[in-house]
């Protein structure tokens, strides 16, 4: 169990995004360069260091769906925009009565093919790894593949191949093919993380941006199993 998971379980909460990033990085998964800041000034300094454009995201154990709350502000191009975004996130968290643990500033990831991967609990089979293409493919067409953990390399390759939209990953309309090896490695890593950290109940990596070489997990949500507190 990583330190972050242990601490979160002790505090009876799920991982906040910087911790999820940390967990992913510990397993060798690329995430955007980022800093957690606690003031508009720090936000400005961090952004200059990371390089524009940046993204600002709320860090709060009370907020599962950051976007719905207005806690994610994309494409910030200068210091003024970053300061305004910081203040806006503080205000939103106050309105929502969510405990704020800072604001995450990260480098905006360049465009690529968006996919999603994760771990969910099936009522019958227990933990399963999930994979699909981002956007409408999963939501509208339910074009997803699942496998039980632990995954083998063959399973990971099959999961990628068997979704209907798989040709999109090979490159269509002059687009470059996605790094399928990196993607397969990511699915194997999700499986390994789940096996080695049984405290992880759910993991939602959405979106993951896949490039011709490599990929970046832009947004990560990790929910933990909590023993119910004694009444």
């Amino acid at each position: 169990m990583t330190i972050a998971i242990g601490k979160a379980i002790q505090e009876g909460r799920n991982l906040v995004e910087p911790e999820a990033y940390e967990l992913l990085e510990a397993y060798g998964v690329s995430v955007p360069r980022h800093r957690v800041v606690n003031s508009a000034e720090q936000a400005e300094v961090a952004s200059a260091e990371l390089g524009y454009p940046v993204v600002a995201k709320i860090v709060s154990p009370d907020v599962l769906h950051k976007t719905e709350l207005g806690g994610v502000l994309l494409n910030l191009n200068d210091a003024a925009a970053v300061r305004a975004a910081y203040r806006q996130i503080v205000e939103r968290s106050r309105q929502a009565r969510a405990a704020l643990r800072g604001v995450l500033i990260s480098r905006m990831a360049p465009p690529g093919i968006e996919v999603i991967a994760g771990l969910t609990q099936d009522a019958q089979f227990g933990p399963v790894v999930m994979f699909g293409l981002g956007g409408i493919f999963v939501e509208v067409y339910r074009d997803v593949s699942f496998r039980l953990i632990p995954l083998t390399e063959l399973d990971a390759a099959a999961m990628i191949r068997e979704i209907k939209a798989s040709p999109v990953l090979q490159g269509v309309r002059g687009g470059r093919p996605a790094d399928l090896k990196a993607l397969a490695d990511l699915l194997l890593t999700v499986s390994r993380m789940a096996v080695e950290n049984p405290e992880i109940a759910e993991m939602d990596l959405n979106p993951i941006i896949v490039y011709e070489e490599g990929l970046s997990v832009v947004d990560a949500r990790v929910l933990l199993h909590h023993k119910t507190a004694p009444a």
Binding site: D122, A123, Q124, F125, V128, F146, L148, A158, M159
Partner: peptide, 15 residues
């Protein structure tokens, strides 16, 4: 019977 999520069955059967 608990019929479960079909996509999960699909994946498990293939696996």
């Amino acid at each position: 019977s608990l019929a479960g999520r079909d996509e999960v069955y699909e994946g498990v059967f293939r696996q």
